[in-house]
Design a protein around this nucleic acid. Structure first.
Lengths: 197, 197
DNA sequence: CTGCCCATGTAAATCGTTACATGATTAC
DNA sequence: GTAATCATGTAACGATTTACATGGGCAG
């Protein structure tokens, strides 16, 4: 159900085609949500039936694109969804399940998984830091497009808000990196294997 | 697919019934994975067809329970899965999607969501800290049952390993709490609204 | 004119959620 | 005997993944 609103959030900012949305939701590059084209096209069709989006009339669509914009009903639904209380998704962490059941495995195998963990979150940290840098430089296209919907005196507040969302993800990544590095150091430490922090 | 191995991980430690597994996977109490009974019973049936689990012969099942234990094929499959490289699940964070699209909303609404975030992770922090405390006190039943599968000289290592997994989740929660609190402080701060960290 | 990227989908399978059905046992 | 809990499921639906189908436009 969140895909629906993640899509609306992009379309409210700027009318886009399914293909353009797919590039923004692709694996490793999504803004808090990721999805594949087949899922996006299906959801767009559902949103059009709901009357929450409609083909954008302005300008002839380049190539054979179908560009959508959000209707007033869609914008209202978006606002209502955002206001709802969050119900937190169930805990599902396949990597922790692996590590929990890896107690019989050789330390080298545990170490390899922790190194992959560290490297993965180092990549993700770079991604989110790049988003922060773009915000700081005023080069973040989606944010700039979005700011145009609001009066200038609110811009600093909105920029600060978005900046904190991105910085929060940088921080998550740093927590994971530090955890993995300390775990690896413990594995590499002397055989006394002192108590965990 | 991870549910399958999360179940195997419990059954390897101790033979259990579907109902007993369901209590260990219930929302808010799962060990890195959560699932509802209907999903667990379906997966157990699939695992029995695969020959990875089998009804435990020992002792008459109390009431009308069906208690399963892991076969040698199941144990081998578990080890193979644990050794696999982790492929990280796609990023899907409905709460961040909400907050990202809440830029037009009144600060009170943003604040309410951040307070719920803080409170949620404070709850989760207590949960994981309780697991850490149980490990430290030697009262963690699943870990103690699991240790019996290994020679005594490896126990300290395994305890340290599990302790670090739990402590890592405590740390994640603390990161979320600190982030939310700083965000709230910024919202409550003077109207200058300085730069994000 | 061939290969590549743009662009929109369909189909099947798997995984997860919600609602419901059914009966046994235990506590009061 | 009645309610709560134990215990095992079925059915239907919803969300996600994977694989495939199809055609247009552009660069070499």
């Amino acid at each position: 159900m969140s895909l629906r609103y993640a899509l609306l959030g992009f379309l409210i900012t700027t009318p886009l085609s399914g293909y353009q949305l797919a590039t923004r939701f692709k694996s490793g590059g999504g803004l808090f949500w990721e999805a594949v084209p087949s899922q996006i096209y299906r959801e767009l069709a559902a949103l059009e039936v709901l009357g929450w989006i409609a083909p954008a009339p302005e300008g002839l669509p380049a190539r054979n694109q179908r560009v959508y914009e959000v209707t007033s009903a869609g914008a209202a639904a978006m606002d209502a969804w955002c206001a709802e209380a969050q119900d937190y998704p169930p805990e599902r962490d396949p990597e922790r399940v692996r590590l929990l059941n890896m107690d019989g495995a050789p330390p080298a195998q545990i170490r390899a998984h922790l190194e992959a963990h560290r490297d993965h979150y180092a990549d993700r940290r770079r991604f989110w830091q790049a988003r922060c840098d773009e915000v700081d430089a005023g080069h973040y296209a989606r944010l700039n497009a979005r700011l145009q919907r609001y009066p200038a005196e609110r811009h600093a507040f909105i920029i600060g808000q978005v900046r904190r969302l991105f910085a929060g993800n940088v921080r998550r990544c740093e927590t994971e990196i530090a955890w993995a590095e300390e775990f690896i150091a413990w594995l590499d430490g002397d055989t006394s294997h002192g108590p965990a922090p």
